[in-house]
Design a protein around this nucleic acid. Structure first.
Length: 290
DNA sequence: TTTAAATGTTCAT
DNA sequence: ATGAACATTTAAA
């Protein structure tokens, strides 16, 4: 309600948190057969076990052990099985600018007109800024109609990250303006700020097919997962699962459009534009908040 | 468990 | 127009 200046610090209390967490996840992923003990992990990172335990838990809401369990095949399959009845079919009569009630974050979305899409962003003014978030550095992009892009980068690859995004809309005009984008960052990464009073407005810049896929993703509740073929079925092209994968992968608003909740039919995490480790991190983080 | 063929969209010749 | 790439999936060996 108030407190503008400090919020960004609240999001990431200790700057390097994600760096540590990321290392832990990477280590666990490679060595998970060994079921490494907390001591082993800590030793590998040159940290004290208690320190590490505390940092990790503060970040994820889950102990490293519970986290490891949350990202295994078994757990993923359970998430899928749970999705038998209700998920995609029952939901929502969303027209083009209809509000969709999410289980978690409230979003209103709006697709671009075909003419605007053909212009590849021409005549569009996009403001962008970098912000710290629980998953590293986030690049936030907005238009006057709402959030248009969200990307991630670690360390010094901010430039790479920016390049990746700007090349999607070559004719748009880009202006650096962290002031304008910071309010979005605050809203997105702090679950406490999620409310229906002020829905988050997003603009879907993509082809017809892509937009349909992304709208599907928006219906997936927090802590749940669906397969690529589920989505294909829901948009009326049951055999297009592969195409769906491609569309999911080109989603410009990562995290807000929960592309990390789409997984393979056997429960395996297949791919992620910003790195599989980050996908695991997001799934585990959500498991801790749910 | 690994391999091969089928599949739909997008992007580059 | 045509072909290759892709964050898939299924069936067959």
């Amino acid at each position: 309600m108030n407190m503008a200046p400090q919020l960004q610090a609240d999001i990431t209390p200790e700057g390097p948190d994600y760096d540590i967490v990321r290392s832990v996840i990477e280590f666990l992923t490679v060595e998970y057969r060994e079921q490494p003990s907390l001591e082993a992990i800590a030793a590998h990172l040159n940290q004290s076990p208690t320190q590490l335990q505390k940092t990790f838990t503060r970040w994820a809401g889950l102990s490293p052990k519970a986290f490891l369990q949350a990202v295994t095949l078994d757990h993923a399959k359970r998430l899928l099985r749970q999705e038998n009845m209700p998920l995609l079919e029952t939901s929502i009569e969303v027209g083009l600018s209809g509000p969709s009630r999410l289980h978690d974050l409230f979003v209103t979305h709006e697709a671009m007109s075909p003419g605007e899409w053909k212009a590849k962003g021409g005549g569009l003014v996009i403001r962008y800024g970098f912000h710290q978030c629980p998953f590293g550095t986030a690049l936030v992009m907005t238009t006057d109609r709402g959030l248009a892009g969200l990307a991630f980068g670690d360390g010094g690859d901010d430039a790479t990250c920016l390049e990746d995004m700007t090349s999607r809309w070559p004719n748009a005009k880009f202006i650096q303006d962290s002031e304008a984008t910071s309010s979005y960052a605050k809203r997105i990464f702090e679950p406490g700020n999620w409310s229906s009073d002020q829905p988050l407005r997003v603009v879907l810049l993509g082809t017809d097919f892509q937009v349909r896929v992304w709208e599907c993703l928006l219906k997936i509740p927090m802590g749940r997962a669906v397969t690529y073929s589920d989505i294909a079925r829901d948009i009326g092209q049951p055999t297009a699962s592969r195409a769906v994968g491609a569309a999911v992968g080109s989603n410009p608003i990562s995290f807000v459009v929960p592309c990390h909740r789409a997984i393979g039919k056997n429960g395996a995490l297949t791919g992620y534009h910003w790195g599989l480790t980050r996908k695991r991190a997001m799934l585990g983080w959500e498991a801790g908040k749910a």
